[in-house]
Amino acid sequence: MVSGRPVVGEKDRSTAIVPIRVPAEHADEAEDPRLSDVDEWGRSERTRALTRAIYEPVYSKWFRAEWEGLERIPTEGGALLVANHAGAIPSDAPVIMHGIEKELGRPVYGLADYFFRTIPVVGTLWARAGGVSARPANAYRLLKEQHQLALVFPEGTKGPSKSFTDRYQLRRFGRGGFVEIAMRAGVPVIPIAVIGSEEAMPVLMRVPTLSRALGLPYFPITANLLAFGPLGMLTPFPAKFKLRVLDPVHFDVPADQDRYSKSRIMEESEQIRSLLQEAVYDMLRDRRSVWFG
């Protein structure tokens, strides 16, 4: 063991106080001081594995999630997964993350509004489970520098906050920031159409006064709240989830440009939105029952 204490009787006291160490001194320390496997994003594979074990029954028994075209998701390299977003407390995010991690065995980082980080406990659990705040710099680092899968819902809170009467009508895809990030990072966008999320937690009405008072992006009254009382916050209805992975969209523009044509971005974003909207409609056409698919 290396002692940090100056040897008694050492002549040159100043070097003992300021040890300008040669790097070798540290190199032999084999034991890693780390206790957890939390990565720089706050994601912990152990927490994820535990979450997956708990969520597995919800995924396969409650929602009976069914994938189509999962092979379109690459097994390595960065890709930006883009999906439609619905249900007051959306189940689409955990279902997609769980499904891909289970089937492909690679982590998915879920990008969401940084608002989550401000909520005690929730913010921490969210980060440990693979949640990352949706900053362009974060997405770029994940996709380009770390070759990871990142999941983003371009509708943002507009998706989950829309009421049940607007179900499966995709909202505006922001300002197309996700396209710009994919271009800059040089990765494809992989659209994923999801059905079932709307019926899992339908928003009957919103209470803007409450959301303002509580500082929340929206405050929904869900059918689940009426059915189960406060427990309805955590209990989605067992709607059958179906997910369809669409063909990856590649943008043939060079990565790392300072800026990209705004009109091109908006065009691509709109294109992806309509692809998703069309896929959702197509899946709904084939769906006989909300509960049995």
């Binding site: 940084y114 608002f115 401000t118 705040s133 900053r135 710099a137």
Partner: peptide
Amino acid sequence: AASDPNTFHEDT
């Protein structure tokens, strides 16, 4: 802050 990027570069 909550709105921070995960990693600050010198120019961020």
